[in-house]
């Protein structure tokens, strides 16, 4: 029944499939980004307490959510890679880490730029902020570990193990605002209740979350293809691909 999945363990098949999927992700990411950003910045009503500074939420929350989403993806891929010894899954881990790191950085930076006018401080050693900072360090650790080995099979395994160790941080980040008294506010959307936010403000936020998720997917596929190309660079199909592109320089498929 699951036999149709088998060919995708082959790098060339996965390369072609991700190439076909990429435009779809971009087709979702770009329009939602433009609409969400204009809606959030110009059309959503100002907050009654925070004024227009709350508009930072439209990048802060999607980035923070997808930073954790990216990590969950990596953890699942790392588990599959380690248990069933699928190299492509380990490549997914390596491909996703830099994107997750950038998203985490964005979440931290926009949080600081929002915290300064609202809390009066760029940074406080609050449970949510600290656990998010640890997430950034875990991401950087995974990237550094993967790059430390020239043998990429070994590198993939080491990075996957570190990814699984770092999973412990995810529930800590999510529940940090519940478990500890924090300056950071509690969950607004991700809770078993009505979102505590006006609909006019919520819709652009949801649009931006979709946009960040789709862009994450697009970048993962792009970097995943890079990983495949690099590791398979001696294989005939990659050589054929390169020869094809060098004969028509402006058209790289």
């Amino acid at each position: 029944m699951w036999k149709w999945l088998h060919p995708y363990a082959k790098a060339e098949k996965s390369y072609t499939l991700s190439g076909k999927l990429m435009p779809w992700f971009l087709a979702v990411a770009l329009p939602t980004f433009i609409v969400g950003m204009i809606w959030g910045l110009a059309f959503a009503p100002a907050d009654y307490q925070q004024g227009d500074s709350f508009r930072i939420i439209y990048i802060h929350v999607p980035a923070a959510m997808m930073a954790m989403g990216a990590y969950s993806t990596m953890a699942i891929a790392a588990f599959i890679g380690l248990v069933w010894q699928i190299r492509l899954a380990e490549m997914t881990v390596a491909a996703t880490a830099p994107i997750g790191a950038v998203y985490t950085f964005i979440a931290l930076f926009t949080g600081a730029a929002w915290g300064k006018p609202m809390w009066g401080a760029w940074w406080v050693w609050d449970a949510r902020l600290t656990s998010e900072l640890i997430l950034l360090f875990v991401y950087l650790g995974i990237i550094a570990l993967y790059n430390a080995f020239s043998d990429k099979v070994l590198a993939g395994r080491a990075a996957s193990i570190l990814t699984l160790v770092g999973v412990i941080n995810l529930p800590i980040i999510h529940f940090s605002v519940v478990w500890w008294n924090t300056l950071h506010q509690g969950a607004t959307i991700t809770k078993f209740d009505q979102p505590s936010m006006a609909t006019d403000m919520l819709i652009p936020l949801l649009i931006m979350i979709v946009s960040f998720a789709a862009f994450l997917g697009f970048m993962v596929l792009y970097r995943f293809r890079n990983e495949i190309l690099q590791r398979e660079s001696h294989r005939p199909w990659v050589i054929a691909l390169v020869q094809q592109s060098s004969s028509s320089v402006n058209k790289r498929g």
Binding site: A46, G51, D52, S53, R55, I56, H60, A113, K116, P117
Partner: peptide, 11 residues
């Protein structure tokens, strides 16, 4: 941005 231009545009 209602006086928050620096922070919003910086972010």
């Amino acid at each position: 941005m209602g006086g928050y231009s620096f922070y919003v545009w910086l972010a």
